[in-house]
Design a protein around this nucleic acid. Structure first.
Lengths: 205, 205
DNA sequence: ACGCATTATTGCACTAAATGCAGAATTTAG
DNA sequence: CTAAATTCTGCATTTAGTGCAATAATGCGT
């Protein structure tokens, strides 16, 4: 080992920073165009042009056109799993997911995210991917729960994750089909959905 | 006398019959090739050739290559919703879905359906569509339940459908990852999954 | 500062999916 | 048998996505 002070910015060199910037530039250009003209009406050439890279470079950053949208939506997964891990000791699994969901929604739900969700729903090719994303989210949530409650029955935690993500999906649909709801209303709306969820599940058998 | 054929079964003319046959021929050729060589390794030209139609005709029957697989899997939806509608009067919703699921699985679960499911899981492009199919199935199940129990809270039925289809999805995964299970074991396996499902859900809150 | 290895970017050629269109072939109805 | 409707086909075109090799930018050791 040599002098450490020689390489202070070892955390993120110019290369990594540029790569991150380029990726963001492509994503921004793509989302802007998608929201303006619709997903299918935008070509990859167009995105590449707007982001000032070659078409070939686009595919170096995203394996497919759809993945730009999917990656954009994935901003929810991190906050959710982190919130699960960060709860107080005494907490039971059910309370943990409810609190985590509320927490993560408060952090990531913006007018823009709703606009993107609407775009996804209006594009068949994207709608399928959207559902796949929910399944991945369910898996991540289960993993976070399993890591925090290793003594619990894994299948039980898996079902808990399934039920909660399912409620998120149905709740989002309800939200979208209800006019006049603003981002500020999210906490109370989420509370309402959860209350209904536990009530209805208790009635099953 | 030849006027026996004067009033043939006007229910399905030659045109409709041929169309149905052609569709089946294309689907058969495609599935056979997919199972032998994998989804991505088979081109539409190849399928069209094997089914003795032009490539253009293929797209007259299926909007995309993936839709052949999706349509094939959709054989489950009909039996499930019919079984929901056909139950005895006294039955409660929860019992209805459990019986319907068992019924429909017994009718449609074949070695071939498992082979196709494995193919789907091994192909990213198809896996996304698979999840979309589950959501559609959930919607159909909800509609069947809502039609039969109009006085029940729709949101409750929606959650019931969500939970049951989620259990089907997770149960199928468990099945696939367990070696040595045969189609005969499906009823008992399904029973086990349902018992576990209600037990775990009761423990939530 | 200089060269060298690594990685990022690009252009080019190519495959394959999917769509539009116009005409030929087939089926149905009268 | 004829006319209308429908199905099938070939052809051209657009676009997504991949492989490859050449070039440019960056990081690193001296």
């Amino acid at each position: 080992m040599k002098d450490v002070s020689r390489t202070p910015p070892a955390l993120e060199g110019r290369r990594e920073r540029k790569r991150r910037e380029t990726r963001a530039r492509i994503a921004d250009a793509a989302i802007t165009l998608f929201l303006r003209k619709g997903f299918t009406a935008v070509t990859v050439d167009e995105i590449a042009e707007a982001a000032d890279v070659s078409k070939r470079t686009f595919f170096d950053y995203f394996p497919a056109k759809e993945d730009v949208v999917i990656a954009w939506q994935d901003k929810f997964t991190g906050p959710l799993t982190e919130a699960v891990a960060a709860g107080p000791q005494s907490e039971a699994p059910v309370q943990a997911v409810e609190r985590a969901m509320l927490d993560a929604l408060g952090k990531t739900a913006t007018p823009e995210s709703f606009a993107i969700h609407a775009l996804v729903q209006g594009t068949p090719a994207l709608a399928a991917r959207e559902q796949h994303k929910y399944v991945l989210l369910e898996t991540r949530l289960f993993e976070a729960l399993h890591a925090r409650y290793p003594q619990e029955n894994p299948l039980g935690l898996r079902l808990l994750a399934m039920v909660v993500i399912g409620a998120l999906r149905i709740g989002t649909e309800e939200w979208q089909s209800t006019e006049g709801l603003k981002p500020e209303d999210i906490p109370s709306f989420t509370h309402k959905v959860f209350r209904m969820l536990w009530r209805q599940l208790a009635k099953l058998r």
